[in-house]
Write a protein that binds this DNA or RNA. Structure first.
Length: 495
RNA sequence: GUCCCCAUCGUCUAGUCAGGUCCAGGACACCGGCCUUUCACGCCGGCAACACCGGUUCAAAUCCGGUUGGGGACGCCA
């Protein structure tokens, strides 16, 4: 078989959403697996809704995900003359005809059909118009659309979908569809086919919502004298109410950019998305790029739609828990040096980035990431939960304040005392910190956890985190002593 | 209303094509335990599904039919 060529043809009417991203990923994987080419084609023929900003957003989204293409971006609008020529060819060859029915007439018929609970389909009123009748209407200046002449009578279009198997559709169930608007602009069905022929697309991998279009497009290929590509339709991604996910009704939670802004590692999102409707056939769920390309097959694509289980207002999970989990997995397993590259822009955005983290404080910075990442889920956690590592103005967690500090009023005096002990040390090491803290607790007759966790609160603003002995040693004597000395400020205004 | 697609734990899924090894496996989530100064990680354990009815068969999650449920399409959008 000849070269594998697939395409991702987004219409630039909004940002890149996870459904589109998944389609792009499947195409990309298929191309990479077979040593083929991925073509990016922007389908901007709907000039009214297409925007420059959207095009930019889609391209940025793909780049961020790491989905690279080999050709394009091409713009459908720049091939308008080809589309018009194809329509002319179909008209000339008798595969299409002009239809003078007005929008109003058609709408009225459609509404009547709905009211009567009947099937509505174009009745072919203009199909048998004689050349004279057509000429007369044109002479009268009546606007016309061009419709494709679907074969009549017995027969059907049959094709073998790589995911859904043999799909058959009777001619009688396909109406004479419009291929050119009355203003002369060709419609998607035609443009798409003309572009795919020109771009020598071998496999069309798209959402299942395009399944009903396929028979009509195959008819178009035949009429145009071209061999249809191989089709593979993927199941759809549904929301919690099992409705098709769309940017319009779901907003930012389905936008790829949302995940970038909320601290996702792009590959983690790819890894999650690919699992939504595909399985390698075994228990693997975490894949490197190479492993995924190797494992991916269209046969492994599920036929049932899947639900994107996002937890929008959940304090712990702001999206699908599995997506978060996969992101957390990568967060704590990628090389620290790589993680540092991802954390940098997050800290920069918060204004707490120090260039020295790439210079003399590099080792310290990497160790900090190493210590923190075990309990983080997203990159943004480094700037929020982990802020105390990088800035002195960090917020105090309410639970930490109540349970670790205010619950033990003695801490107001004890913590500054503990500061003195640390200050007396030439340097705080893990073992020294542990010795000092335990002795301190013993002298005051409390469990070690009490002063230790109170210290955690004033030093990190959190009630959870890495071992405090490590924190004492790693944060450094100066900051530890200073924060412990100022512990009293948290008690002001109390009782 | 018409046409088409789909149906395994709460979610993502393996198993369905080649019926028995499946009183259904994994992951996430959830619950419990261990570890521990805390939280997490990790480890151990638990909860939890073949939509329903009928048929074929010695045997059905798997094959067939029907029912129900869900989804998609039905545009001079892409």
């Amino acid at each position: 078989m000849s070269e594998v060529r697939v395409r991702f043809p987004p219409s630039p009417t909004g940002y890149l959403h996870i459904g589109g991203a998944r389609t792009a990923i499947y195409n990309w994987l298929f191309a990479r697996k077979h040593g083929g080419k991925l073509v990016l084609r922007i389908e901007d023929t709907d000039a009214e809704r297409s925007t420059e900003e959207s095009i930019k957003g889609i391209i940025e989204g793909l780049e961020w995900l790491g989905v690279d293409w080999d050709e394009g971006p091409y713009f459908q609008s720049s091939f308008a003359s080809e589309h018009v020529a194809a329509a002319g060819k179909l008209l000339a060859s008798g595969h299409a005809y002009k239809c003078f029915c007005t929008k109003e007439e058609l709408e009225a018929r459609r509404e009547a059909a709905v009211a009567a609970k009947a099937d509505y389909r174009y009745n072919g009123a203009c199909r048998e118009l004689s050349p004279e009748e057509v000429a007369a209407r044109e002479a009268a200046g009546l606007p016309a659309v061009i419709r494709f002449k679907v074969p009549q009578g017995e027969g059907s279009v049959v094709f073998n979908d790589l995911v859904y198997g043999v799909v058959e559709r009777d001619y009688r169930d396909i109406e004479d569809f419009v291929i050119v608007r009355s203003n002369g602009l060709p419609l998607y069905l035609l443009c798409n086919v003309v572009d795919d022929i020109r771009d020598r697309i071998s496999h069309v991998i798209r959402g299942q919502d395009g399944l009903v279009n396929t028979p009509r497009q195959i008819l178009l290929y035949r009429a145009l004298g071209a061999a249809p590509p191989i089709f593979a339709h993927m199941p759809l991604t549904l929301d919690l109410k099992k409705a098709k996910i769309s940017k319009r009704s779901h907003g930012e939670i389905v936008a790829v950019q949302f995940y970038r802004d909320h601290g996702f590692l792009p590959w983690a999102l790819v890894n999650f998305l690919v699992l939504l409707g595909w399985s390698p056939g075994d228990d693997r769920e975490i894949f490197s790029r190479e492993e995924l390309i190797e494992a991916f097959t269209l046969e492994g694509v599920n036929r049932a739609n899947s639900i994107f289980n996002y937890k929008k207002d959940d304090p712990k999970f702001f999206t699908d828990p599995k997506a978060i989990n996969i992101n957390a997995h990568y967060l704590r397993t990628i090389p620290v040096a790589e993680l540092a590259q991802w954390v940098k822009p997050v800290l920069e955005r918060e204004g707490i980035w120090d260039p020295a983290y790439e210079g003399e404080k590099r080792e310290w910075f990497h160790k900090t990431l190493e210590m923190s990442r075990e309990r983080f889920h997203t990159l943004t956690d480094f700037a929020t939960i982990g802020r105390a590592w990088f800035a002195d103005d960090f917020p105090m967690d309410e639970t930490a304040l109540q349970k670790n500090l205010l619950k033990h009023p003695q801490m107001k005096e004890w913590l500054p005392q503990l500061a003195q002990r640390f200050a007396a040390l030439p340097e705080i090491t893990h073992d020294e910190a542990e010795r000092v803290a335990r002795e301190f607790a013993e002298e005051h007759g409390v469990k070690p956890g009490v002063p230790i966790n109170a210290a955690r609160a004033v030093i990190t603003g959190q009630n959870k985190g890495p071992s405090m002995f490590e924190v004492f040693a790693h944060l450094g004597k100066e900051k530890v002593v200073q924060r412990l000395r100022e512990a009293g400020k948290y008690f002001e205004g109390q009782n």
